[in-house]
Design a protein around this nucleic acid. Structure first.
Lengths: 147, 147
DNA sequence: CACAATTAAATTGCATACAATCTATATGAG
DNA sequence: CTCATATAGATTGTATGCAATTTAATTGTG
């Protein structure tokens, strides 16, 4: 049965599945830390972007996160309801919505500061190894976005 | 502003985000091929498992895919509605549900056979490189599952 | 055997992802 | 200027993921 099963279709040989599984498992490691902050993973990465550069349009946020308004609009409304961001129309271009951290949103950063290293420790990854893997994945993402 | 921003919080430095982005981009590359078969990505990987070993319980499927019944039950009902699988109670243990490929489900395999290599080509990945990356990710998944 | 504890699915509720469509605003060619 | 085209968000609909709970069946222990 299994002997003549085409090798290229085995789940174990799928890079796509390794990525899919690895991404979900990684998110699970973040969950307990993020629960403490009352954030989901996607809300967390959105805040990462805003902590780095505040006052960004939904469009720009989407370019950083590779997400569209269909995902971001409801997510940002939730962050707004949690008093972490404000959404304001751009006076320079009324089509745009600017997302701005509130005082509370900015303050949350210090509580998130050590999450990545905590997770890193748990996985037993060195900074070196993790960095290499990350760079390989970033290359791949760039390659895929050309298609 | 940006100069004193804590390095460990930059989106560019997050392995978790690289995984999350890479996984989603990879799924996007599969989409046009899977559309032809009328399958979603999760339905596709579920069939990969069943093509490799038919007549598996929902529990076993979940162990391979790292998914629980909350995700699998509705997905399997859809595959059943599409006439690709049958769901039958295990006579040996009435708590279990066995998932079995239909003739149509088995037949679909030949049409899926060349999808992985097509996607691989698009990304410009050699079998060698892809395999190495996959193995690294599989290691990491195992490591994370110990936690 | 009786029954508490465990297990497998199913269900419920919430938060994404993302395609497709819609609405409002801005832009560019004539 | 003017209208066709493009662009930014919002909305709608479908399909996950996953935690928490529920239901039904099984198992282990006294």
């Amino acid at each position: 049965m299994t002997e003549d099963y085409p090798v290229q279709l085995k789940l174990e040989h799928q890079l796509c599945f390794a990525l899919y599984a690895c991404s979900r498992e990684m998110t699970k490691l973040y969950r307990p830390f993020l629960d403490e902050l009352g954030l989901t993973y996607t809300q967390y990465v959105t805040l990462l972007v805003l902590w780095e550069q505040d006052n960004m349009s939904v469009k720009q946020l989407g370019e950083h996160l590779l997400l569209d308004s269909g995902t971001l609009t409801p997510l940002l409304k939730k962050l707004e309801a949690m008093n972490l961001v404000a959404r304001v129309r751009d006076a320079k271009d009324e089509r745009s919505v600017l997302v701005q951290l509130t005082e509370e949103g900015r303050a949350l950063r210090s509580r998130a500061e050590h999450i990545p290293e905590n997770v890193f420790c748990q996985v037993g990854l060195t900074f070196e190894e993790g960095g290499k893997l990350r760079e390989r994945l970033q290359q791949l993402v760039e390659e895929m976005q050309k298609r």
